[in-house]
Write a protein that binds this DNA or RNA. Sequence first.
DNA 1: CTCCTATTTCATCACTTGTTGAAATAACAG
DNA 2: CTGTTATTTCAACAAGTGATGAAATAGGAG
Lengths: 196, 196
Amino acid sequence: MARRGPRPGGADTRADILVAAERAFAEQGYDGATVRRIAATAGVDPSMINHHFGGKDELLMAVLELPMDPQPMVAAVLGASPTAPGAALLRRALAAWESGPGQLTIGMLRSSLHRDRTVGLVRQLLERRVLAPIMAEMTVPEAERPWRVSLLATQMLGLIMMRYVIRIEPLASADHDQIVTAVGPTIDRYLQGDVD
Amino acid sequence: MARRGPRPGGADTRADILVAAERAFAEQGYDGATVRRIAATAGVDPSMINHHFGGKDELLMAVLELPMDPQPMVAAVLGASPTAPGAALLRRALAAWESGPGQLTIGMLRSSLHRDRTVGLVRQLLERRVLAPIMAEMTVPEAERPWRVSLLATQMLGLIMMRYVIRIEPLASADHDQIVTAVGPTIDRYLQGDVD
DNA sequence: CTCCTATTTCATCACTTGTTGAAATAACAG
DNA sequence: CTGTTATTTCAACAAGTGATGAAATAGGAG
């Protein structure tokens, strides 16, 4: 029972830990997710986390390094509907957030918000993997893009928070259509309307 | 030294614990704020927290029960500028969030987001102490108010998150004026414009 | 003054946390 | 077949957590 040494078969312990950790961090936050429970879920010994990652902090870093990549979606939306991208963007974003990986991402976001160091990671990730791709596809003068994109981010993140985290009604139960018609114009204005 | 028994003078131990706990929860989150440190800051024994509140959970509940009351501000703004309340509302909100108590409130919000039970408290507080007062002052038909107010909340909360928690640039360093002109129209539309 | 009660300190408990080091073993190079 | 290395399990530690119960004491009631 539970002999020592490398596990037979090409078992990828490191990957097993990563998926267990992603769920744990997303569902229970950084403090709530214990090294021991993650290891148990992954079916390995707790000390494997230190062996493979160095410690709990580095494990979180590793997990945060694998987010959904929104670049294809952004390119598709902004390329396809240049005049009123808000509706299309919102539609795809809502679908993405309500998918399995999307919920995990929201959970990770949620659990990263209350530690200053992890908030820094979130900011970097947001800038590099979400806002930068959007800026690259925009048509307005380059100098305006950072400001417009940060405005866009406020509306998007606020929507996530209110609908999926705080779950305020009637927003939490609203149809996608309702949200798209209500919030779409805001997105359009932030992306290409009058903002100063 | 440190004799037992009630402290001489009308020392209000319970209140001392509350102010220490508010700061601690706001700055370090629920898990980060330890009973021992809170007690040390308040200058009392850790067991006083159990004696006066019953435990750490009940202490958090007690702290969450004392938020800023936005009702006067809301009434003033919506009463004074009925046609374009967005700008005035934003101006006062920005000032409020950047005040001492406002930062504390944001910290509390931040630290409450990653526990389901405390998120429930935040929702209740938000509905009762913020959204309800706003709805009471609105001029649009009553049936539309919950929906409009929840839209308003997404934009406001997103702004808080991006500017004060995640601190994305250039939003984090933007003037109040910039923000007001960029986001004000969004607020106006959510409060009295076309949203469906 | 005397008793009583609420308040406070102290010592300690039971538990969980992340982490470490040594021993055991599978896979691979030669 | 042999030696080496990386991987894994096991046992344990040091630190810190929230909580508890008993002893001590100040202030108010009678």
